[in-house]
Amino acid sequence: MAKEYEFTQIIKDHEGVIFKITTIYTNNHEDQKDLYQEIVYQLWKSFDNFRGDSKISTWMYRVGLNTAITRLKKEKRKGNQIGIDQVIMKQTDQYDTEFEERLKILYAHIHGLNELEKGLMLLLLEGKKYEEIASITGLSPSNVGTRISRIKQKLKTQIVKK
């Protein structure tokens, strides 16, 4: 019971992290809900192995990102899903139109990146330092820097094209 309590507290404290990962790696609401549950499930499964060797957020990003890229995609999902609609933010209820438009542009840019770049971009937007990005991704801090420069370049090219 103590383990369950500890786990639920951690998830509640970091639910925004899971939400943001799901927005980056999915293109529709159904997939997003499915991935959200999958990440919570994988976190629960690996909770025993997480012994505080790394920061909670590092563990969560690592499991979340790994789950997102290894998820076996199914064309149709009919299984009952937990009502996480309330959890998934309905942008129209929350934002003004202008902000919504900017958010859409941001997502469009991110969805145009490859899997590796998406992960790096997410961590960069989350304000992570190169060292922490390196410990989550397994790249060296200098390599993280190089790749982020390439992403910036790529984003600039996308803007020019548009």
């Binding site: 925004g16 999958e38 499930y41 937990i82 929350q94």
Partner: peptide, 19 residues
């Protein structure tokens, strides 16, 4: 997102089981 946290303990436990 931070302002509208809505996950409950029950929902989290159910998610792991359902999944």
């Amino acid at each position: 997102i931070e302002k509208q946290k809505k996950l409950t303990d029950k929902m989290i436990i159910m998610m792991t089981q359902e999944q």
